[in-house]
Nucleic acid binder design. Structure first.
Lengths: 276, 276
DNA sequence: GATACGACTTTCATTCATGCAAGTCAGTTT
DNA sequence: AAACTGACTTGCATGAATGAAAGTCGTATC
């Protein structure tokens, strides 16, 4: 679109000169030799088509237009400073995009210790639609079966059982999500096998749990959630149809990226099969 | 301080790649050949000490850290876009710093037509202290006598007379500024010759005029102000001791800067001597 | 299963920017 | 008045970045 892409490095030098008021001073502060500065500013003026400096005998002074440009671009130095800090100091934790089911995400969020992960930060992305790890829509996925594509790296995690929970055996009926696309397997199973016993629906899994805790009905939960909730009792044997392994899936190449690797290790530890 | 100055051009290319998702795409959009992009990104990674890309078979994908950097630096493109616009389109008016006395500044502000000056915009700087035009603390000065330094360009403008004004001859006493350093010549003259007739003082010349209009006393004003105010009557002959020429002063080199030149011409026209 | 394609990397001659040293020029000092 | 100083510009040899073409590697197509 715009042929004359403004050179940001020249611009940065320009700002330094504008602040210093002379080539000599700016040259020292930037560690750039003075002749280079002189030539680059000449080029910069040509490229902008403006006269930015008054080349007086007493040094460089900004023209009116030069001052306008300097004030226009003043944020540049802040950006540079911020990035320099990011590069050589902070190294803030990098966000690692994780896609997982609702309960697994919640379990993970509570298991992972943020202070022990200086390298990465979990970023849970909703997994309603099936995100395509192969297309890097997320970095790490936790799935209930191994991926189809051979390009994805996989690792088997713990076995996950589901069961029916409630605050007591006297509670009848079920609380679940409304029927619709993108429903988790456990909710689909409930709709298929106990569809006529559904007492209430709620739009959010966590809300279903709250309703169950209030006595509105029974819920189907992963055992790692249901067993951890002291106010709930297991009201059935594990549901065979819903038993599955959890699989940790990531892109073959992404897993060598340090933050992602760290995330993979931490997640694997949190969701390890008991035997491992 | 920081040896490894981050290269803003590389960063900009990095953002383009991050947005595009591939070297090929970014190369076209930036007009930079693909091999160059490849090498510069390799160098950029070395300079930051981070792995920013996953070089997969399907193109470049950002690592977690790469995404962190991209979001950290996202403003850069806005800045660049804004500057590009500034450079090749808008050419917003450049601020020209003008130092002048209070009433002259006011007269100028009302005389200069902003729409007829696409090249520059007046920026009035307070002239309490004597600003040093030779040191470029301002671009243009309007003084009541020619400058001392031979390095400054000068141009004689209209003659300025002062007189005593009031809403009528019946008003006695004077309104003026309180005694102090940095007082204009007309106020000094009033304190010296009519010091015992001062009725009120105000901290601002404009406020003095308002007080005079309200009948609190007489004021000394330049005739170009007093005569233009229909509610005021001239109550004295022009004061000989305060008569002076106005001088338009600027730096010898600065006056060839187009915006400053335009400003000089406009000011000279607004404040021209009647004969010219 | 062989071939074509896409996306980058590498090679190499060339160009361009760099950085040192010398040059210019106005104002200042002695 | 002559020499000095400060602040930039110019010349020239060097080195680094560039860009066109060929190379590599994996995936998609037939």
């Amino acid at each position: 679109m715009n042929e004359s892409r403004i050179n940001l490095d020249d611009l940065s030098l320009f700002l330094e000169i504008a602040a210093t008021g002379s080539l000599t001073g700016a040259a020292e502060r930037c560690g750039v030799p003075l002749p280079t500065l002189s030539r680059r500013m000449a080029r910069f003026e040509r490229s902008t088509g403006r006269t930015l400096f008054l080349r007086g005998k007493a040094g460089y002074a900004l023209t009116a237009e030069g001052r306008a440009l300097a004030s226009e671009a003043s944020e540049l130095h802040e950006i540079r400073a911020r990035l320099s800090r990011w590069v050589d100091a902070g190294r803030g934790p990098a966000p690692v995009r994780i896609t997982a089911g609702f309960w697994t995400s919640r379990f993970l969020a509570m298991s992972l210790d943020p202070v022990r992960n200086p390298l990465w930060l979990p970023a849970f992305v909703p997994s309603n639609a099936v995100l395509d790890l192969a297309r890097r829509e997320a970095d790490i996925g936790i799935r209930n079966r191994p991926p189809d594509s051979p390009r994805l790296a996989r690792r088997r995690l713990r076995r996950v059982d589901h069961a029916i929970y409630g605050i007591g055996p006297q509670v009848t009926g079920y609380v679940t999500l409304p029927k619709g696309p993108g429903l988790a397997a456990s909710q689909r199973w409930l709709h298929e096998t106990h569809g006529d016993e559904i007492a209430t629906t709620a739009s959010d899994p966590r809300l279903c749990l709250d309703l169950a805790l209030a006595g509105f009905g029974r819920v189907v939960l992963p055992c790692f959630i249901g067993d951890a909730e002291p106010r709930l009792a297991r009201l059935s044997e594990p549901i065979a149809a819903l038993a599955h392994d959890e699989w940790l899936v990531s892109h073959h190449e992404a897993r060598h990226d340090p933050p992602i690797r760290a995330a993979l290790d931490a997640i694997a530890a949190a969701l390890a099969a008991p035997g491992d």
